[in-house]
């Protein structure tokens, strides 16, 4: 059978996409479906699963830890966003031509390169109530030592502060590359029109950095929602589950030492997935709109 040129043209993109589509179906779509299905079962990973309908979700509704995790996820989302302006200002500060600036830039980028596990350990020692640097410093001001990681009101903020360190570095790199493409002509024109300082930044530079801002926001949202390593290293969700977030609570229920409640873990994963979908859908919509425009 011979294909017409038109048919060939229609078929070619699908052939090129085929390997990607297959991978995506097998490693992303299929597991999502499996985990959705599992969330209606009770399963310990060993004996055959039993179908229990909506019971896992009903239990979630009454589970105080789930509420704490959800609340903490919101705090993470909001405060993690600080990484975007922080990253912008560090990038603006470093975007100059001075001897040795490359070295300084790489030092600022350093926290993003080291493992989250190391970041967690460093901050856990930093917060240590007896020997930690933080308490030594606040001791100079005559304040009583605080045990951030054992205090239910402070613990989440303490972990987010640790997370902001590498995340700021990440946003900084995004902005540094963005700043390279800021057109000097437009900046020059702005200067002639009398823009300087904040108004220059707000009206001339920032609009040109929109793509960088967009990516920085997206990676930060995703980073906040999947926050896991730091919690695993610094508190394991403690004290008494007060620093719990959905991603870690899912792991704890499904795979940790006292867990192996696969169905319940899957139900948490489903909720997390739905929350992420809101952002992902928004992201896709924006991409689609931008492409329509250009």
């Amino acid at each position: 059978m011979m294909l017409t040129t038109q048919q060939k043209r229609a078929l070619t993109p699908w052939l090129f996409m085929a390997p990607g589509i297959v991978m995506f179906l097998v490693y992303v779509i299929w597991p999502i479906g499996q985990s959705l299905r599992l969330s209606f079962y009770q399963w310990d990973g060993l004996s055959p699963p039993t179908f229990i309908g909506w019971e896992n979700y009903i239990e979630l509704w009454y589970d105080p830890t789930f509420v704490v995790a959800l609340k903490n996820n919101v705090i993470w989302l909001v405060l993690y966003m600080l990484a975007v302006p922080f990253g912008l200002f560090v990038a603006l500060f470093l975007n100059q031509t001075v001897t040795g600036i490359r070295l300084v830039k790489s030092l600022f980028f350093f926290p993003f390169v080291i493992s989250q596990v190391v970041v967690g350990l460093v901050f856990a020692w930093f917060y240590d109530p007896n020997n930690g640097l933080l308490n030594i410093v606040i001791g100079w001001f005559g304040m009583d030592p605080v045990s951030i990681l054992a205090d239910e009101d402070l613990v989440t903020y303490g972990i987010i502060a640790a997370g902001l360190w590498p995340q700021t570095a990440y946003c900084m790199i995004l902005y540094l590359t963005g700043l390279n493409s800021v057109s000097p002509d437009v900046v020059e024109a702005g200067k002639i029109d009398g823009a300087r300082g904040w108004s220059m930044l707000w009206h001339v530079v920032l609009p040109q950095l929109r793509p960088a801002t967009f990516i920085a926001v997206v990676v930060t949202v995703i980073g906040a929602l999947r926050s896991f390593d730091l919690i695993a290293i610094m508190t394991q969700g403690g004290p008494y589950q007060q620093s719990q977030v959905l991603a870690y609570y899912m792991y704890e229920n499904a795979l940790s030492e006292y867990g192996y409640r696969m169905g319940y873990g899957s139900a948490i994963a489903t909720v997390l997935f739905l929350i992420m979908m809101v952002y992902i859908a928004g992201f896709l919509y924006k991409m689609y709109r931008d492409e329509q425009r250009s």
Partner: peptide
């Protein structure tokens, strides 16, 4: 406690004991 009680109970129980000791 964590061998006499089933895993899910032991986990919730020990979370509760820790919380009790602090609050």
């Amino acid at each position: 406690y964590d061998r006499d009680a089933p895993a899910a109970m032991a986990k919730a129980g020990m979370d509760g004991f820790q919380e009790y000791m602090v609050k």
